[in-house]
Nucleic acid binder design. Structure first.
Lengths: 210, 210
DNA sequence: TTCATTATGTATCGAGTGGTATAAAACTCG
DNA sequence: CGAGTTTTATACCACTCGATACATAATGAA
């Protein structure tokens, strides 16, 4: 499971030396994601994490750094896993489809029975103490980045005549992100998939006809 | 500042005995609210609270019980203070005005420069560890209660012909709560008042004409 | 085998947590 | 003035937190 630096001479190439890992880092990271998702950064104690990941503390530190670095790796995994629907939706040809896929994707994810409720990017570190200020900024920055990406996508749609001339991409993007984040909160409150889908449908009524 | 039990005989009536309080409990509670609001329940350490409240630990425990009871008292204060716009909006005669006042009230509060960003009821205990499970349920229950109150108000509006016959009060109420909670998240991200007002205006476009 | 290397398991560290014991201080009542 | 009562301030408690030291186990290389 060791990734060889490419281009290394075969003479000095290190194969796997020392005692091999007894766990799968990807699976452990997935389990850590669930803990952070359910309890938040501060609410997730290292004992919670190691228990769920089925490794002990030194293994966690050797493989992932420390709690904060583990959380950042979890955020990456989250963005490329449960949140993948977002980037995928951006590739839809029509703006209306982009928004539909985003809203219904969020409704699906935030109420997936196999996953913790809500959204890690929202509830992972929304309000926390000073010691978690760094990860708080990180999640906020990622949320802001999603909004910017969506805004750019809507600006493109406007140039393409896919949105009416009086439409405002910035405020539409912010509106959609607001609904998304609200759906995350609703998810933690136990909202069902049907309920979230209906919220998405209502939210979609504001969409301008092209 | 002692509340006399009514009907007590004047002979045994206790006036203020013992050393008097050196602080104003209402002001201390207000300061505690700001700390919980900014840092969340778990992120607010007792040392943060006592420093902000300008009292020491035993005084806090004597006056407010413990951390959890203090948080519950803070929630009450929050509901009757910064969140008062919500109950007041429910008294508007027309459903459309109710929703407008709620959305613009939230935009105003979540971006008030004199207050922490966002909404205590959302970020106070959204995702947290097991030890905070009780307060987590409390904030979730209060959010749910607000949604029920709003739904009832819209049901009344429908009976009064203030909403079209095909309108669904339950899903409209859930939609409005979703936007509100999303605006709280946007507030923590530093959204300005103008930006939040625009979100409110966009959200209002879904409103059915009566 | 023997050595070097890496992972594991236990046990522990200092710091910070929520909460409290205790005694001095400040008041009212008699 | 005491006597009784309540608050304040200091110091401390047991516990949990994130993080690590250390010895052992398990592998590849020599």
């Amino acid at each position: 499971m060791v990734y060889l630096p490419i281009g290394m001479k075969s003479e000095t190439a290190l194969t796997q030396r020392g005692r091999p890992r007894a766990f799968d880092p990807a699976a452990a990271l997935e389990r850590a994601m669930h803990v952070f998702w359910a309890k938040g950064y501060e609410g997730a104690a290292l004992s919670d994490l190691t228990r769920a990941m089925r490794i002990n503390r030194p293994s966690l530190y050797a493989a992932f750094g420390n709690k904060e670095q583990l959380f950042r790796k979890v955020l990456d995994r989250y963005a490329s896993g449960p949140l993948a629907y977002f980037d995928k939706a951006m590739e839809a040809p029509k703006a209306r489809d982009v928004i539909e896929q985003i809203l219904f994707g969020a409704a699906k994810m935030a109420s997936d029975p196999r996953l913790p409720a809500g959204c890690l990017m929202v509830q992972g570190a929304l309000a926390c103490g000073d010691s978690a200020g760094s990860v708080q900024k990180e999640t906020a920055a990622r949320r802001a980045a999603s909004e910017i990406a969506l805004r750019r996508r809507l600006q493109r749609a406007k140039r393409e005549g896919d949105l009416p001339r009086n439409a405002d991409p910035a405020e539409l993007a912010r509106y959609v992100m607001t609904v998304l984040q609200g759906m995350a909160v609703q998810g933690t409150n136990g909202a069902t998939r049907v309920q979230l889908r209906r919220v998405a449908q209502v939210a979609l009524r504001v969409w301008p006809k092209p």
